[in-house]
Write a protein that binds this DNA or RNA. Sequence first.
DNA 1: CACTGTGAATCACTTCACAGCG
DNA 2: CGCTGTGAAGTGATTCACAGTG
Lengths: 259, 259
Amino acid sequence: MSQQRPTGTPGRAGHVPALPDLPEATVARLPEYLRALHHLIEAGHDTVSSEGLAAAAGVNSAKLRKDLSHLGSYGTRGVGYDIALLVEQIEFVLGLTQRRAVALVGIGNLGHALAGYAGFGSRGFRIAALFDADPARVGEEINGLVVRHIDDLPRYAAEESIAIGVIATPAAAAQRVADQLVAAGVTSILNFAPCVLAVPENVDVRKVDLAIELQILSFHEHRKATLTGLPGNRGGSGGNFPALPRALPDTGTQEAVGT
Amino acid sequence: MSQQRPTGTPGRAGHVPALPDLPEATVARLPEYLRALHHLIEAGHDTVSSEGLAAAAGVNSAKLRKDLSHLGSYGTRGVGYDIALLVEQIEFVLGLTQRRAVALVGIGNLGHALAGYAGFGSRGFRIAALFDADPARVGEEINGLVVRHIDDLPRYAAEESIAIGVIATPAAAAQRVADQLVAAGVTSILNFAPCVLAVPENVDVRKVDLAIELQILSFHEHRKATLTGLPGNRGGSGGNFPALPRALPDTGTQEAVGT
DNA sequence: CACTGTGAATCACTTCACAGCG
DNA sequence: CGCTGTGAAGTGATTCACAGTG
């Protein structure tokens, strides 16, 4: 009764993994495993233990085994996992057996860099079209792709079966672009603009914000400085600061690799 | 690995008013609140309810109140939060009362874009130095900053009190760069290279991997496609799965915000 | 009376520890 | 015997629901 997951039975007969509903946390780690596996292949291995793969992916082995067990994995007790098979499994689950077409909107500083990024191609995606709202940028060619005007999105989205959009515009334009993407049938968005997007519930949004990442690091810097007895951190502003009544012993935030 | 040994156990040196140790999940959301608050300020507000701020930040109000309560927040019952005060609080907790110096290593495609990104400056950071290993790139000027050779890192790191490093090199170079950063005294790293970094336990690493984000979206695309249409579970006998009832309300990705 | 702050309940994820298989 | 796969225990985060306050 603890599990809402219906399977659990040893019926391993199904050699085709229909999509189980994986925990989100697991889904987020599968790509990391995949990368590590490809790396192992290049290094000439063809099997790997949970311990070994876990180390390569920066997680602990129990977590890795649990994750793989969710996709009905095929390890061999006493031996480990067949790398090629595992790659196939994970790629299937992640929907990478087809190369997905991606539209990139906003060809500024960051957009240029993304358009030129080779990692997309090698990891299951194809940048199928570039868009910008600025007529001055339309027509420019990057990496063999011509920048189109955003208003032409619906046409190309259909033509290229684009289901994923990447927003690399300024924040002020992002919501509008998101609306246009959704109207064009896009159901997954990767948003680099520092703002929250409102979208219909069938659309998934993931967000990458550089400043937020730095601010999280800053918090830990601040904490470390405070812990190591550097009381004299001054902000320049009037150092009024509520004593923040707290006593909890320090939980060891695991740092170091990954996680 | 889970050993926590803070640099020399601080033998309970009395009660230095330390930072509360916030839940990681809360820390990760504070920057988002901060951004939303600045936005509200620009819109002319000076107080906001938990409901209002939650909407602006894309979370629900209970979560927001719980988060703010962790930092001993100052709301007024019946009214809401004083925006200016809240901004000050959050900036203090995140260690943003000082403008932190950041070193950017790897001035390729992405590095260029990051070097030119205005968002750093406006959100508490200052890119203090650019580095690359390629002599051909050394000397180039971007945004008023000259690209230095990576071997000069120790000198500038000390000069500029750099505590945060951003790695935008190819994966093959990233570990080496990380080692150099650590040797130069950097204790927080933001890694854009698609690989796992090994660092001492007192160093924090956060990772941004574009391909991973897309692969996670791909999973959801795949799932949606399987749920909504595709009837034929290609597949053999037995092991398939129940059609996953109910549309999942929220799967961890951002999804339909707005209330 | 509308709002915050918070214990209590719930849910999700991680870790443990070991049964059982190759 | 070494390793995977997994119940069960443990930990952390979210949500609920309401007491209490300005």
